[in-house]
């Protein structure tokens, strides 16, 4: 069939994503479908691309830029996804960009009216990378629905900065830019609270981390890779080979993974 993975996945990523990084910061914008991600993107960049109210409208990753405090930030609007487990082309694009595109900051746009569902993605992102800012969007709707969120407590639970905003009305965007700049320049270093799994998983992950570290050489979070391998995520192996040039499915390494799984 004419459609290959390349039409949607890796080639797009290579051609569109990996930018020439000269003196500017790269910011990825992730979020659930309909969390108002495109609205935040427009508000930050001043672009006026139309944002429809239906899932999947961001098929082509929009790119834009803004300057703040004398720094330039290149913003990439990733497809809206519920998860980073690479079950669909969009999820794989989003995940590959966050892992391999090496953004300086990943902003997760969250629907404040539907926090619990949106936190699932936040938790997955903070497992992948530490430079994360949560933008708690649609605060105006949350207020209308009498939903009150304890923002400092939320930031404490997650271990990353949380900025409340109502992008449609322009609320909270100045502060969001401040926080993005602080994380990008290293003035603020988020320390995400790790998610603790059951003993089985933790033990297996710990053994894998030890085996993975020499191969990954710090380019990816080894614990995260270990967890994905335990899940049996084959697309990640492809990604690692493609972007880092490390073939983790070589016989020697694969045997060790199987050993842990056994």
């Amino acid at each position: 069939m004419g459609l290959t993975n390349q039409a949607t996945g890796f080639r797009t990523l290579r051609e569109n994503f990996l930018p020439a990084r000269t003196g500017s910061y790269l910011v990825a914008l992730a979020g659930n479908p309909n969390a108002g991600k495109s609205t935040v993107f427009n508000a930050l960049t001043g672009l006026r691309q139309h944002t429809g109210n239906w899932p999947g409208k961001t098929v082509l990753q929009a790119r834009g830029r803004f300057t703040h405090q004398g720094h330039t930030f290149n913003l990439v609007d990733l497809p809206g996804t519920y998860s980073l487990l690479a079950n669909s082309a969009e999820e794989q694009v989003a995940r590959d960009f966050i892992c391999f595109g090496r953004p300086d900051v990943t902003v997760v746009v969250v629907d404040a009216t539907c926090l619990e569902r949106n936190l699932n993605l936040v938790l997955q992102v903070i497992e992948t990378t530490t430079a994360v800012v949560v933008c708690l969007n649609l605060m105006d709707e949350a207020r209308r629905k009498n939903i009150v969120i304890d923002v400092p407590l939320l930031a404490g639970e997650l271990g990353v900065p949380v900025v409340p905003a109502a992008a449609r009305k322009g609320e909270g965007l100045g502060r969001l830019k401040d926080v993005i700049a602080a994380v990008a320049t290293g003035a603020m270093r988020p320390v995400p609270t790790p998610i603790i799994y059951d003993d089985d998983i933790e033990a297996a992950a710990a053994r894998l981390v030890g085996q993975l570290q020499p191969h990954l050489k710090g380019r990816l979070n080894a614990r995260w890779v270990a967890l994905r391998l335990l899940e049996g995520d084959a697309t990640l192996l492809q990604g690692i080979q493609q972007f880092l040039g490390v073939d983790l499915s070589e016989p020697g390494i694969k045997l060790q993974v199987k050993e842990v799984l056994a």
């Binding site: 619990e116 936190l119 699932n120 938790l123 939903i147 304890d150 639970e157």
Partner: peptide, 17 residues
């Protein structure tokens, strides 16, 4: 486990739901 954690955090931080 991820969903359980999300549920816990939402339970603690969403004051009036």
């Amino acid at each position: 486990a991820l969903y359980a954690r999300a549920q816990t955090i939402a339970y603690r931080t969403v004051k009036v739901a």
